[in-house]
Design a protein around this nucleic acid. Sequence first.
DNA 1: CATGAATGAGGCTTCATTCAT
DNA 2: TATGAATGAAGCCTCATTCAT
Lengths: 197, 197, 197, 197
Amino acid sequence: MQERARKTREKILATAIRLFARDGFEGTRIDDLATSAQVNRQRIYAYFGNKEKLFEAAMLEVFGRANAEDEKLIRLSKTDLPELTAILLRHYLNVHRHHPALHRMVGWANLQLKKAPLWMKDIKEKSFAHLRELYRVGQKQGIFSERVTFDVYIFTLLAVTYFHASNRITAAQTISPELFTGEGGKSLVEQMSILFS
Amino acid sequence: MQERARKTREKILATAIRLFARDGFEGTRIDDLATSAQVNRQRIYAYFGNKEKLFEAAMLEVFGRANAEDEKLIRLSKTDLPELTAILLRHYLNVHRHHPALHRMVGWANLQLKKAPLWMKDIKEKSFAHLRELYRVGQKQGIFSERVTFDVYIFTLLAVTYFHASNRITAAQTISPELFTGEGGKSLVEQMSILFS
Amino acid sequence: MQERARKTREKILATAIRLFARDGFEGTRIDDLATSAQVNRQRIYAYFGNKEKLFEAAMLEVFGRANAEDEKLIRLSKTDLPELTAILLRHYLNVHRHHPALHRMVGWANLQLKKAPLWMKDIKEKSFAHLRELYRVGQKQGIFSERVTFDVYIFTLLAVTYFHASNRITAAQTISPELFTGEGGKSLVEQMSILFS
Amino acid sequence: MQERARKTREKILATAIRLFARDGFEGTRIDDLATSAQVNRQRIYAYFGNKEKLFEAAMLEVFGRANAEDEKLIRLSKTDLPELTAILLRHYLNVHRHHPALHRMVGWANLQLKKAPLWMKDIKEKSFAHLRELYRVGQKQGIFSERVTFDVYIFTLLAVTYFHASNRITAAQTISPELFTGEGGKSLVEQMSILFS
DNA sequence: CATGAATGAGGCTTCATTCAT
DNA sequence: TATGAATGAAGCCTCATTCAT
């Protein structure tokens, strides 16, 4: 029965991610979730306690999965330095493309939470440690300015890629819809690489 | 009596902005809103129809007020070109500082809406037209690269400043809390101006 | 609309008394209560807050009504002293007969509460003060023993009459069903008057 | 394995008594009971059928155990007659003290049942038969009045002792908290013995 | 016999909205 | 216009009980 339970739990979690990402905490109905996941409503409470804890579990799962991709970044080396900005932009855009729930969960979290869960730092720090070191080397080589810290550098990249994913609706209307097509993403990367050099 | 009605309407709208920005559409209770605004619940329905329309009205108001500040940008001239990036960054950061409801309403809107309201384009376009022209001059003068379009340029600035306002909670934890202090904002502007040059 | 509300409130309270007395706090369903009282479920929450507070209100009402009858006791005077025991027994038996919800609410309260509400003391003390004085006179006249305090005296009377009302089901079976018929009540009073003399 | 089953059954019953006495039928959760008794939930259903039957079994057990103490009363003889009232009061007070579940189960039973189970009569009748005989002798000796039947006599004693155990919470507040201390119990017996003589 | 997964009915409470004075 | 009573749909959660391993 362990197996059966594991599957049920997983169905709940997968559906929770989908619905919470789409509708937010308040906008998600436990009943819909149960129906949609094809499990008994009670199971949700048996496995996750309550709606709030389920939301946290979903958030952790989404962040965890998305950040698992960042492990690739550890393989970057000095030879990648000239292309680093473009590589990172492409990488983070890709993360958002492959994990469409991510920016939405981040969005809900920032709107609803008073404080970020503690596990968030750890989850990012793994790749950051490596990149920070690499960036320093780049600075020494004159590729990056000594007057721009790594924090500001990475902040900018994350901001741009997050904004691209999250503000599609308003920015497509206010700035330009073309930026959000497939082609748009590519030229965005190219132009930004120029911008940041 | 006309005057009294105008005031009532305004109290409702102001409170709606505060509560919708804070708690979102689903998280806001009409009754709380009425109590908080010290008006009768029925007035809300009389003036705004229903909760959804009230949310739209609040959103329009917030966007309108915030973008009113962009009119200042029209006064920018060629002499400002060397400092343009810093000026714009400071400007947009200030807009967010003075209109804390803005990024939250943008956030809710992006998460909940399927399509942006039509009035959004007009609201931004006024200042964009001027800046676009200025940017073109800057390109001709060699201040800005010919290979980076205005759209990408402005996109980047908006992304960074929006992200700074909206992702405070998660980014302070994952990147660095210092970026979000008063000092942090300043050095952000400085460093980004360097980054984008 | 004040009048309409008062009626609704009263319907709820009356039904609450009936159902809580019959089924207890846990055994009573708010939905049944609403249906039975022919009011909208929501009104219960509007007027009484929640189930617990409604229970308290029902309890207060029952105790209040029942104890209102004790005001008659204040009219008792020295001339009643020889008959006092019989008078009081009859009185308390009558109170239970006319307020069948009383002993049940007392029962539920004793089983479920950790502490009695404060208003309970006041409600009884009015008649007790008078009876206590009368009892003292009776002691001086040699009608009541100096070695039996008023507290024990009244405790005994309340115990017997309460038990008669509340333990009908078990006592009728274990002792004798006759004690609980109309005749039985009368001979109970008579014999107890003898017993206590 | 028979032995193990017996122990399990007993654990369930003991816990059922504790919880049903404390929280009543509706207030008791089968799951809590299973956890608390450290047995599997399924065993409860295997041994007792359902919640209702378990409640009955618990009730029977409590009544049985408490009334087993009444067998002592059979040893009373004519020489005890002058002290009979005090002896019985002390006895029944003791029964309640040693079986705190008793008055609560009686309470729940009286509030929830329409009719008492048949076994209740038999359980009491054993001691009553002896006491009735003794009482008759006492009447002949002039110790008890001929005009007070044994039923009324025993009813009074049971009422007082039951009330003392069951209405502690309300009576301590309305009459006097002192009656419910250790000393209070003693003086209650003394004074009542006087009262009934 | 033990375990814990699964079920479905139903419990308390709250919400946006409309009605009646 | 202001007030607050009324409504009904629906939200979150829990319970006793049964099933499957």
